Each structure stands twice: as structure tokens, then as C-alpha cells.
Simulated scan of single mutants.
Amino acid sequence: MARVVLAMSGGVDSSAAAYLLREQGHDVIGLFMRSGEAAETVCSTDLLPVVSIKPHHQGCCSASDAADARRVADRLDIPFHALNFRDEFTRIKDYFADEYAAGRTPNPCAMCNIWLKFGKLWDFARQVGADFIATGHYARVDGGDDPTGPPTPPSLNARLLRGRDEGKDQSYVLFGIRREILGRVLFPVGDRTKPEIRELARLAGIQTADKPDSQEICFIPDNDYAGFLGRYREPVETAGEIVDTTGRVLGQHAGYERYTIGQRRGLGLAFGEPRFVVKIDPELKQVVIGTREELGRSALTANRLNWLVDPPAGDLRCTAQIRYQQQAASATARLLDQDRLEVEFDDPQYGVAPGQAVVLFDGDVVLGGGWIA
């Protein structure tokens, strides 16, 4: 069996993943990746365990979550480390603030997976002699390296697949995993549904079996994006005009960072029919409002690509997903150059937002993706 480093968030999914890996006979090491505010005592990346933790709610990366993860690790009798990645996580906060300042819609969860969970997690695994990493994400890996067999060089034949539970599938935010490590990634809960995982945790006596899922960005537990941006960065004047697609002024807004493409509610204006945010212009400080037809886009371009299969040589028929909880749509993708992709949809898509990811699928298989320009 293999030594596996598991990212433990203190939630039911990673807790159940720890139980499943241990039941399979693996040598499991739990790692809590502290990325919020510093607790009373938190170790640095010297591999020393936390001595004490002061409970304080901070989303999915809080001290109370670390305490939950430690209790599960103690229950399952597996080693546990809680490391301080505060400096690395500052990069994610900076990215979040920079994207909103540029009038784009960030996706911090996908970036956290790329930079932290499947970057630093893999680095830690190599430091402690582990050949595999695991998380509680609802996704699957097919054709990866065999954790029950002898060590082999990492395979490039592994495929990332959607999770069995369509309502909880998280493959969209995992498209940025490096292909060269995908074969060494395990998703123990990916073949099960959320109700099955909760029941498994209850039967195993895991304390987090009924813990609610985290719904907010971990560094914005009150879900107040504008408030966070105001506290995190020096105040910048972003208020301006709300206009229609012809440039006619309809009203005023308090800051364009409060809006995102496709937004319908909270516009502060009354219309005879639904209106949506169709564009954000940070230079003019304008939020552009239009009809559903004006919101629709038949094509997009993306950059900063990551492929989990060989890049296409010509037109690629696929389905393309533009938001985490949005259904993938039939499309044709083609490379414009080494790091730019064009996606042409069979039918117009609504809510194509610069800064979000577009992820390409062949059935359940994740082909790759990039960031909408």
C-alpha cells in the first residue's frame, strides 16, 4: 500500500476520505492547510504539528476547522499536521482583489486548487516520502498509478473525470491540476454521493458527519465581497454610471466591483422586463445593463491554458462549462496559438464572464481549460 498525504479541511468529505484510505490499508498523513488569519499557535512549514489551536470561525480554513480535522485524525489514529500557508494564501487574496479591480470575476477556489491544494500539497508529500496525495473533492481519476503496487514513474495516461454525484461534482474547479501529477492524485469520495458519504461517516463514528458544507469563500466568511475589498486594499474610487448598451445613462452605482457579468438582482433599477449586467468597463467605471439577448455570447477566447490530454491539432468537438454550477454546453474549441483558445458554442451562452474558467469535457472526461479573456 502507499503513503498518502490527505488534505483535511475539517469537513465531512475529507474526513470520510481519511476513513476510506485507512480502510484500504494506506499509510495516511493528514494535512490541514491553514490559509486564513493566524491562530494562537500555528506551526510553519517545518513539518512540526500544531501545539494548540484557538477556535475562531474563518470559513473552511479556520482554527475550529483545524480542530475538527485533528479530532478526526485522532479518531482514525493517523498522523496529523497543520501548517501555516498564510504567505502563499496572500497570493490568492491579491489575485481576488486584482481581478475585481480589473472588472473581472475571479474564481479563488480554482486558483487555490492550482496554487495551494495541488501545489503545496504535492510539495509536502514529496518531503515526507509520500507518492500520492488525496482530497475530499467529488471527482475521479481513471488510469492513474496503482497505489497498491510497487512505486513507478508518474503516468501521463491518467484522466480526470466528473464525480458520480452530479449535484456535487467538482471537476470544473480541478482543471488546473498539472498533468504530470494527476496519476498520483486520489479522490476517495468521488465514486459516492454526498448522502452516502454522510452515512458512511456516521457509521464510522466521525464527528463531522453532519457538519454543514462551507458555502462562502473561506477568507470572506460573511460573503461581503465589497467589504473585504475595502478592508484589504487602500480605498479606490470605483463608483460610476449604470448605462445601457447604447451608452444611455440609467443611474449610478457605488462601485463596479459589486457587479458581475450575468447579474440580475441588486441592480437598484426597475425595468419592464429582466435586465442583466452584460459588461463592466473599469476604465470608464461603467456597469453596462442589457437584455437577455444582449447578454448571450456565441463564442469566447481563453488564455493561461492547462491541458490534461494532448492539445488538439484542429477543431475539437466537446462540451464547455463556463461556471461552476452551470451545465456544460456543446461547442467547438480550437487553439489560436500555444496559450490561447477559442470556444464557439452551438447555442448562445449567458453569463460568460472574463476571469472565470472555461473547462472542456468529452463526456465525463476533463480535457483541459483556461481563463476567459
Rank of each mutant, 00 (worst) to 15 (best):
Q215M: 08
D98T: 09
T148S: 11
C43V: 04
F89H: 15
R71F: 00
G205V: 09
P153C: 08
K93Q: 13
L6A: 06
T45D: 14
Y259W: 07
A17C: 02
T319S: 07
M111K: 15
D339G: 12
D146M: 07
R323K: 12
P195L: 07
A313L: 14
Q356M: 05
K194A: 10
G59Y: 15
T135R: 12
R292N: 02
R334D: 01
H81F: 14
R275T: 13
R162Y: 08
L360V: 02
T238Y: 05
A328C: 07
L121N: 01
G59M: 11
R140H: 05
R104M: 05
Q349M: 14
I372A: 05
L186M: 12
P235L: 13
D224Q: 10
A254I: 04
Q349T: 12
L116C: 01
R71I: 12
V189T: 08
F219P: 03
D145P: 02
S214F: 08
L47V: 06
A320F: 10
Q24E: 14
Y350S: 12
K93L: 10
A2Q: 01
L203M: 10
Q349W: 02
G129E: 02
L269R: 14
A331T: 08
I242K: 14
R3V: 02
E23W: 06
T246V: 03
Q349L: 04
I220S: 06
D165Q: 10
K120P: 00
G205L: 01
N84E: 11
L76C: 12
G240P: 01
A130W: 09
E180P: 03
G368E: 06
A209K: 01
D142E: 14
W307N: 06
R192T: 03
L161F: 15
V185D: 05
Q252V: 13
A226S: 09
Y95K: 14
H56F: 02
Q326T: 14
V249H: 10
V366F: 12
M111V: 05
S171K: 09
C218A: 15
F175H: 14
F85E: 03
D191M: 03
I181Y: 12
A39Y: 07
Q325S: 13
V366K: 03
R184G: 01
F132Y: 09
K285W: 01
I261N: 11
A139C: 00
K211L: 07
W122K: 04
F345G: 03
S35E: 08
C318G: 05
K168L: 02
E241W: 10
R264F: 04
D224F: 09
T260A: 06
R275G: 00
L336P: 00
D145R: 05
G262N: 12
Y95G: 04
L76G: 10
F89N: 13
A201S: 15
D77F: 06
D145L: 07
D210T: 04
D347Q: 15
G268Y: 05
E199T: 10
Y19G: 00
V189D: 05
E294T: 11
D146W: 11
L250V: 06
A373M: 02
A333V: 11
F124V: 14
V287Q: 01
D46F: 10
D146R: 08
A82T: 14
